[in-house]
Design a protein around this nucleic acid. Structure first.
Length: 603
DNA sequence: TTATGTTGTCATCGT
DNA sequence: CGACGATGACAACAT
């Protein structure tokens, strides 16, 4: 628990510090609750580690600190990875929408001036980043105590009732409105100034050693102390990437207005260009800069692909990591078939804990005896009755079956966790009838044949010693046969138990996989539908734009171009060229596309 | 009493 | 070749 809290807090603080460097406000709760959920669930579905540790849900609970200890490490790793990826994408102009989000978060120049030095006072906790909103006259909703607010934001991580991406978007909108009131520049200008902002951010990013900053270990306690002493230092430098990360998420979750946010991050991405296309449609009829709109439409498509590409990239990076990380992190979760000692079949874990580590391979299985027994020197028959005690091994798999309770024989006074009457210790004082009633058939046979070994001993002793026993004690042929049968049956019984356990585990695993695949199929179908819808809208938009452009163009004789005979083609360099249609017969949009592709390939 | 689940055992195969 | 594990099949027993 403490470890989880520590890692969790450290990751958050690092992100916060990164963000504070560029003077942006931090909204950690929306970041956490929104970002991981669609990312992980879309990408991987309820894979093993995630299924077992739905930490993104746990965070939203009151006892969010009860996160599985492994999860914060995953978070830390993933967050760092994403930070790096997003910092790398900063220099690219492929994602202007992402940069727009940056602008939304960006603090005004005056705020920057204040946040620069003063950031050191408010840096590590939230106040420094919250200050823009407070200064913007949002005091009615946010208490003026910055420190308290910041701490509250950090502590609220698991408490916020509104934790979806949509909620984060609403908050984002508030910020936008505030900025719109504060500054005369409209949002569109903000968006169009992305280049400028990008340069600004680039300078920040290039001047900052993000990996090293990320690698710095800042605990929650450290952060609080640092804030108290007003120390900004290098830790502050690790902010921008986190801000990117959160902004990206917000955009993604913003685009999806569905009530079910989990499966549709890609859906949200797809919705972005669709919305832009719709806006474009409304403007087409009246605008004059048609070529600009065309470029914008094209860029929207490219952006869609680019964002999806980014999404895919993140997904692939995560998926590439998961197996090792998850396996390592899950190594103690007892995925081994033999390790589920908590089951009713194998309740002997307490006894097992005192055994050597060689039993870890098979705590209660049929193979567990060998290594332990090998370490015991052969001491002859008396050793088997006294010191040699492999029973701890296998008694846990001796079941509550009507005629089997071999664990009771020649056992030290180990309290067997078996249920029922068979757990009564066998002693010479016990009545013979009761004793016989509790004996297994092989025990009865062994007793009848005067064999001085318990079934457990016979089954669990090493084969070398078993052969020595057979040869060195003058047993009759019947006794030898019985000894071999007892050993064979005992081992086979353990093997059967293991086999059944494996079978059940396999069935369970297959059921889980079926559920996971069904969920994945549903998500993919949704995504497919939305993609088809978006593509159809884009195609219609392109057609409309083409008609509009052609209608405004004139041929050499001053007549408008016939849309049936001419078409627009966008080259790789972004130039739009009017080309005559070879075949007057109108084909489908896909046919046009293929024709265009062929034309492009020919030169 | 019947149906179903659990467990032990045997036979068989592969290592 | 023998020991051993895995597993299907069956029977006895429990619920």
């Amino acid at each position: 628990m403490q470890i989880a809290k520590k890692y969790f807090s450290e990751g958050l603080i690092q992100l916060t510090i990164l963000l504070s460097l560029i003077g942006v406000r931090v909204d950690i709760d929306s970041y956490l609750s929104g970002y991981y959920t669609p990312l992980i669930e879309i990408s991987l579905g309820p894979s093993s580690a995630y299924t077992q540790t739905p930490f993104h849900n746990l965070r939203e609970t009151l006892d969010g600190y009860s996160v599985h200890p492994k999860c914060p490490e995953l978070d830390y790793f993933f967050a760092s990875r994403r930070l790096l990826d997003e910092v790398r994408t900063l220099g690219s102009r492929r994602f202007p929408t992402q940069l727009n989000a940056w602008l939304v978060h960006q603090v005004s120049a005056t705020d920057k001036a204040e946040c620069g030095p003063s950031t050191s006072n408010d840096t590590d906790a939230e106040p420094g980043v919250e200050s823009p909103a407070v200064e913007a006259g949002d005091d009615s909703e946010r208490p003026p105590h910055n420190g308290q607010d910041g701490c509250q934001t950090t502590a609220e991580l698991g408490r916020r009732p509104c934790s979806t991406g949509a909620c984060g978007f609403l908050k984002e909108e508030d910020d936008v409105k505030v900025k719109a009131e504060e500054e005369p520049a409209p949002l569109t200008q903000l968006a169009h100034s992305s280049t400028l902002e990008q340069e600004d951010l680039d300078s920040l990013v290039t001047d900052t050693d993000i990996p090293s900053a990320i690698s710095q270990d800042v605990s929650l306690h450290d952060a609080m102390v640092t804030r108290a002493f007003g120390v900004a230092s290098e830790r502050v430098e690790s902010r921008p990437a986190a801000q990117q990360q959160r902004s990206l998420f917000r955009l993604e979750s913003t685009g999806s207005s569905h009530s079910d946010p989990s499966p549709d991050m890609a859906v949200g991405l797809a919705a972005l260009p669709f919305a832009s296309v719709c806006n474009l449609t409304g403007n087409v009829s009246s605008h004059s800069a048609l070529s600009g709109c065309l470029d914008e439409a094209v860029f929207d498509q490219i952006n869609q692909l680019g964002l999806e590409g980014l999404d895919t990239q993140l997904m692939s990076s995560l998926e590439g990591i998961n197996p090792q990380v998850l396996e390592d992190l899950d190594s103690d979760s007892g995925l081994s078939l033999e390790s589920s000692s908590g089951g009713p079949v194998s309740p002997g874990s307490s006894e097992m804990s005192s055994s050597s580590s060689s039993f870890c391979e098979d705590e209660c299985g049929a193979t567990g005896y060998s290594s332990e027994v090998d370490s015991v020197p052969s001491k002859g028959i008396m050793d088997y009755n006294t010191t040699w005690s492999p029973i701890d091994l296998s008694e846990c798999v001796w079941h509550d079956h009507s005629y089997s309770s071999p664990a009771l024989f020649h056992q030290p006074s180990v309290a067997l966790p078996h249920k029922g009457i068979k757990e009564e210790p066998l002693s010479d004082d016990d009545g013979q009838t009761l004793e016989d009633r509790d004996l297994s058939r092989d025990e009865l046979r062994a007793r009848a044949m005067c064999i001085p070994f318990s079934v457990m001993q016979i089954v669990n002793m090493p084969v070398e010693e078993f052969l020595e026993v057979l040869e060195g004690h003058g047993f009759s042929t019947d006794q030898v046969t019985l000894l071999r049968d007892i050993r064979r049956r005992g081992k086979n019984k353990l093997a059967a138990q293991n086999c059944r356990k494996r079978k059940l585990d396999a069935i369970t695993g297959l059921q889980e996989e079926v559920e996971r695949l069904q969920a994945q199929r549903g998500r993919l179908l949704k995504e497919k539908q939305l993609t088809a819808k978006t593509m159809g809208a884009v195609g219609q938009q392109i057609k409309q734009l083409t008609r509009d452009v052609l209608a405004r163009l004139r041929d050499s004789s001053g007549r408008p171009l016939n849309p049936e005979r001419f078409t627009l083609q966008c080259g790789a360099n972004g130039r739009v060229v009017v080309q005559p249609v070879r075949r007057p017969a109108v084909s489908t949009s896909t046919g046009n596309k293929t024709d265009k592709r062929k034309k492009d390939k020919k030169p």
